[in-house]
Each structure stands twice: as structure tokens, then as C-alpha cells.
Amino acid sequence: MSNIISIENLVKRFGEKIAVDHFSLHVEEGEILGLLGPNGSGKTTTINCLLSLLQYDKGDIQIFGKPMSPDAYDIKSKIGVVMQNIAIVDTLNVYENVDFFCGLYINDKKTRQQYVEEALEFTGLTEYKKYKPKKLSGGLLRRLNIACGIAHKPKLVLFDEPTVAVDPQSRNAILEGIRKMNREGTTVIYTSHYMEEVEELCSRIVIMDHGKNVANGTAAELKASLKNRETIRIGIPNLSDDIIHQVKEINHVYEAVRDEDNLLIRCDGGEHNLVHILSFLSDSNIPFGHVSTEQPTLNDVFLAITGKELRD
């Protein structure tokens, strides 16, 4: 696998504020890389620098092995961009919009026609091709936004929050479309606030905070890096401090706290934690009701690393 994107020590300042702070990133061919970060973490600034829309103070950006610059047309011709906000022409219909943006990359009329039809098919917009954008629902508009960004069959596509305000059906269609593109060889950089999407879609995840690359790995690797590997919730009617104290003594339990009539137990790893805890309760003749366990989510990882919820 070769490096499609190579960012080394990128620094971007806005006056006194450092938006991107010695950020490095490598994206390999065929990856779907999830770029996560709270608002103001430097994701969009990094992407703008990557696309040469923004001049940066320091660092090196290479795409497809060549330095990226505003007039690196050979590189730009292989990149597709799907913006967070809808970037289309209101007065052109669906077909014309896709044809217009595709035409900025593809000169040959026949090839372009074929690509436009395929993009419409891909995004499920064929039956709407004569519609003006104002006649489309939010979900269909998002799909049009995507069609405009990918019609020229780029080798690298940057998706910036493509599923915001999209109905579940359109969201599934979009995610499935991205998977299909990836299967056909397209490398994808994907930013989203939806953890479950990122977890489901991305082969690797990079978490940005304060302009830095603070975590990097697969979803499983990131979760494994957490101290809290399993959370067990048990309903105990006569929960006493003594019971809580005794539970804390069990192997791999690093925290046990009261949550109303429930006992919340956090374990830092190990196997069969639930069996050990339930055995202890039975052996001690402590009555208990419902039992549930939770695996850590990407949001827990995010919270642990950045101290913030992603949707904050």
C-alpha cells in the first residue's frame, strides 16, 4: 500500500491562535480514514490546507507523492470534495449541476455524460435529474452534493459531515455508497460527528484536539487503549457501602459506584468479569435483580482523550 496523503508537521496560525499544531497524518491507498475532533479542533483548517485553499505557516503536504499547491492541477484532478454545506447551483437542475461540476474535471463529452449518469445512479437521483434543487428534500440535496463531488471518479474523496440532517434511509444509502466507492479503489477521508457511522465505516480513525493528532488507530485499538474496558450494571435492592467495598476487591474491578438502586462496576480488562462478580454476589447471599454489561464506545474513547463529548 502506498501513501496517498502525507502531512508532516503542519502548522497553521490565525494571529496568535494556533489552529493546527505540528499535525502529521499519513493516509494509505484504499483506506477510509475517519477524522474526528470537537468543534474548533482544527479538522476543517487541516482539510483546507490539504486542498491548498489555505496557506499554512509550516509543514509539508504531499498528495499522490507530489507537493500540493493551488495550481497542482494533476493532483486536483484526482480529488473529490464533498462539503459539509450544500455546494450546488440553485438555478441549475440536478443533471446540470452534476454535469457542470463534472465538466470542471472531464472534458470529453461522452465520458462526462456516462460519468454523470453513473453518479446519478450511484446516489439514487436518476429519477430526479430534471428537478431543480429547491424541489428536493434535505436528504436528496445531500445526495446531489455528493454526486457533484464524486462524478469525475476521483481516487481520493474528502467527505466533510456528509450525513448531517439526513434521514436514516438516505444516510444508509450514502454510507453504502461510500463503502462501494472504497471497494472500487477510492481512498476516503471522512469527518463526522456521528461516532457510530465512523466506527461502522472507517478502517482507521484519527482524533484531533487543539490542532494535534492525539490518537490514531482502528476503532478496536482505540477502545483497547481505554482503562475502562467493560461497564457492568447490577440492580441490588439493599445496596450497602460494605457491598460496594467488597466488590471493589474483585480482580480487574477498578471502580464501583452507586447509581440509585444500581451498582455500576467498571473493569479495566480481564475475562469473565461478570461471572466473577455474580459468583461473589451469590456466594455472599446478596440478592440482585437485572444485570447488564456495556462495552466502551468510541465516544468513551473520545471523552477520555479530549475531555469533551464529540457533539459538544
Binding site: 485553499l53 492541477y73 447551483v89
Partner: peptide, 19 residues
Amino acid sequence: QGMCANMSERGKRFECAPG
């Protein structure tokens, strides 16, 4: 406005193109 990245999202998309 539709061709300059600092003015609109459309402009951003336009400036990402190789033209």
C-alpha cells in the same frame, strides 16, 4: 461568488477543481 473559495462553499468546490 461561485468561483472563490472564501465566498461560498460552491467557490470552495470550484477552487478544488483543476481548471
